[in-house]
Structures are given as C-alpha cells and as structure tokens.
Design a binder for these strands. Structure first.
Length: 418
DNA sequence: TCTGGGGTCCTAGGACCC
DNA sequence: TCTGGGGTCCTAGGACCC
C-alpha cells in the first residue's frame, strides 16, 4: 500500500507576502484577485475579523472591523516562484512529488529511510527554506491524504500534521466527517447523496458501489474506493502536457468602443501565444468570448466565436484571428466587462503535422517569434507587441497595491533593501 | 470606481460512417 | 406491414477543483 502526503501552504499568497515583510506577521492580511476584485487569500487574523473567501473587496473594505487589514493585489510572479521553492524542498525528501496546484503538492513517502515524525520534519524544512507555513496530511490514497490535510488545518492541537494511515483512526474520523468536505464532492453530489440519507463519510461508505456509480458516475465511484483505502488516483510523476490554455480578464473599467475591445482581445491572444511557445506547443483551435457584467444593471450580451485553425503558435496569426473574431462579436450599445481567448487542441510543436500549404514559411515564423520572446524577456512583457494590440491598454485591470517581484526581479528586491 | 482566472474530467448527443 | 445496429469523432455543457 502506498503512502501519500499532501502538503498545503497555509494562506499561501498571504504567506508569500509575509515572507518578504516581517511587519505583516500577526496582522490581518488579504490578497485580492485580479482587478482587485475579491478576496482570494486571507490570514487567520483576517478570517477572525469576518472576511470570507471570495468577498468582493469594494463591498467590505470600509467596515470598521477591517480598519487594520493590509491588502495586496495578486502578484503571480512572486507566488509562482515561491511555489517552485516549496517544490524543491519537498523534492529533497522524496523524488516523487506532484504539484497539484500552486500551493498544494502530493508526494509519495514510500521508501523513505525514516518515516518517524516525517510530517513535522517536512513542515519545518519548508518553513525554514521557503518561509512558507504548511499543513501536512498523510494517508494510503490521495483522497485520504487530502482529507487528513483538512483535519490538520482545522484542528489546533495537531501542530499542522494529521496521519490517517491507520484504518481504526480513519473509521473514527469518518463517523463525523461530512461527505460534503471530501475532495471531489461538490454541491450537486451532496444533494444527490442527501436523498440517500448520506451526510457523513461513514454513511457514504455504506452505500453499495453500484448506487454510487449510478448517482455520481465514475468520478464518485473512484472517491468511494479511495476512501476505503484502495488507491486509484496514482501520483503522476511527469507533468502532463496541458490540454488547453486561456487568457481572460475583467476590465478595469467598462469597455465601450469596438477599438478598445479588439485591442484587449488582441492582447490576450498575444499573451496566450506566448504561453503556447513557453511550452513549445501549437494550438489547433481558437475560442474568443466577450461579455457584459453579470452584476451591473443594463443590457446583457455574451457571445463567443470558436474556430479550427492552422496549427500554430505564431502571435501575429493568432492575434489577427482573435481580434477579427472580437470585431465580429461586437454589438453596439453594450458596456463590455470581460473577454477572453482560449486555445485548445494543443500539441507539441515537433509532433504537429506539417501543413501542406502553410500560409507563411514556418522556419521564418519560428525565428521571428524567438526574437520577439527574447526582446520581451529583456525589456519586459509587451515591450514588443503586434500593432493590433495597441498601446492604449484601456482595458487594463486595476492593481492598486502590488508588492514587488522580490524573487524574480533584482531591481524590485533592491528597492526594498534601499 | 469597484464582484477572479485559470484548469481537469466526464457524459450526452449530434454527425457521420458502413 | 415492415424502416438496423453498431461504430467513431467531435462539441457543448456540467461538475468540480484551487
């Protein structure tokens, strides 16, 4: 039987901010989503003054109780780099580490020389080297490790570690643990299970497998199995090639001209092409969507255009296709709030079938893209951009309080030291 | 002034084929 | 009078996750 650990960074984005500013210790801190929209990370102190996950910042920030709360715009470059550091620390314990999200990593503990107190030692190492406090959940399947992690997080006496390797300990936990808190069981599944009188994990496990299969499909059946201690979600050692990628944004202010909208979509397509090239991939399908706000009064409109394209990662081609699509989707008389570009049907550039009649010479395009990427690596993203993107950036999201990129930009680190 | 931005997997149903 | 039975591939949409 394998042993999995799930290591999860506490209030990850907030902890990243704290790692570079000790004055934030013990204070309520929140990090906001893009556009400074809603709260996506909060410290224990921030939870204590009543801030919920996903709360719209502009609706709550003036409450008297929140007077001392320190807030940040999200600084993704910093968080991604901190995540990489966390990975490296875990990797020094075990060769089998699978990043599950930016702040969560699964690892296999099998074959480790000394398993005694392993959870605490992992925590100490991550805190010491990466400056990130974590919780560790341990169990014979991913689902159980995840469940253990949740208990570690919520139970003060446990010092951030919960081990559910033992079947009797699990049985005890299952009697009261709500099935709604199990990884992969969402609101829709909870409603179905409630019709069978199921509320706890223990009750869930009493359901016959065929009932679970019928009600919750194979996804639910796997969770059912995993909770009994039979592992069916393996650790994936290799980073899988991604299936699709998207660049979507809410606008800093409503976009009301066709020009501004097409420029925004062009910019998203430009960024999406860049991501594509970073993974050495090409896309065979392009989707563009535009929409008005769900929250503001006024006429609503939402539409998308989806097209199969000649496989490419050429910014100029993708930007041109995407902005033409946006121009077609445009309707007069609406205040647009959000748009996006999605690329799917991805494949490695090398494996992509060659086009019989390419519209442009592939080797020349590759050289041009390489040059563009190099210039932007030195001078900053967007320094060199397709003309269709423009320089007005009317759509740019708000970022009212962005911390410095301490770990990835030397100049920005020096600003703090100075 | 102001409500995020990504992902994955699964299923159903349509189009098309023999 | 009677109008098949599989396959595959693709897409849209649901559900869930962080």
């Amino acid at each position: 039987m394998p042993t999995f650990a799930l290591v999860d960074g506490n209030s990850f984005y907030c902890s990243c901010e704290r790692a570079f500013d000790p004055r934030l210790r013990g204070k309520p801190v929140v990090v906001l989503s893009n556009n400074d929209g809603c709260v996506i990370a909060r410290t224990a102190e921030a939870k204590a003054v009543g801030i919920g996950m996903g709360d719209p910042w502009h609706l709550i920030k003036d409450r008297p109780a929140l007077r001392d709360v320190i807030w940040f715009s999200s600084n993704y470059a910093l968080y991604a780099d901190m995540s990489r550091r966390m990975f490296e620390v875990l990797n020094s314990f075990s060769p089998d580490v699978e990043p599950y999200s930016i702040d969560e990593m699964f690892m296999l503990l099998d074959g480790l020389p000394d398993r005694n107190g392993i959870g605490s030692r992992i925590r100490e190492a991550v805190l010491g080297s990466a400056k990130i406090p974590t919780c560790v959940g341990i169990g014979p399947t991913k689902t159980i490790a995840k469940l253990a992690n949740r208990i570690a997080k919520k139970t003060p006496g446990l010092e951030g570690v919960c081990d559910l390797s033992d079947v009797d300990v699990r049985r005890d936990v299952y009697r009261t643990f709500p099935v709604a808190d199990v990884w992969g069981v969402g609101p829709s599944s909870v409603r179905k299970l409630a019709r069978h009188g199921v509320e706890t994990v223990a009750q869930f496990l009493e359901l016959p497998a065929f009932v679970v299969r019928k009600e919750l499909s194979v996804t639910g059946a796997r969770i059912h199995q995993e909770l009994t201690g039979i592992s069916c979600l393996p650790l994936s050692d290799l980073p899988s090639t991604r299936k699709g990628l998207a660049v979507t944004r809410s606008f800093g202010q409503p976009v009301a001209t066709r020009q501004a909208l097409t420029e925004a979509v062009a910019a998203f397509a430009d960024r999406a092409s860049e991501k594509l090239r970073q993974g050495d991939l090409v896309a065979g399908h392009l989707t563009v969507f535009i929409r008005t706000s769900d929250f503001k009064p006024g006429p609503r409109y939402s539409n998308l255009a989806s097209m199969t394209i000649e496989r490419t990662s050429d910014s100029l081609a993708l930007v041109s296709l995407a902005s033409r699509a946006a121009a077609r989707l445009w309707r007069d008389g609406y205040a647009y709030a959000k748009a996006g570009v999605m690329l799917t049907d991805l494949s490695p550039r090398q494996q992509a079938p060659a086009d019989l009649f390419p519209s442009r010479e592939p080797s020349k395009v590759a050289k041009l893209m390489e040059a563009i990427d190099r210039v932007n690596a030195v001078h900053g993203r967007g320094a060199l951009r397709p003309a269709l993107v423009g320089f007005r950036d009317k759509w740019k999201p708000r970022q009212g309080n962005l911390s410095n990129r301490f770990t990835t930009d030397l100049r920005e680190l020096m600003e703090v030291v100075a």
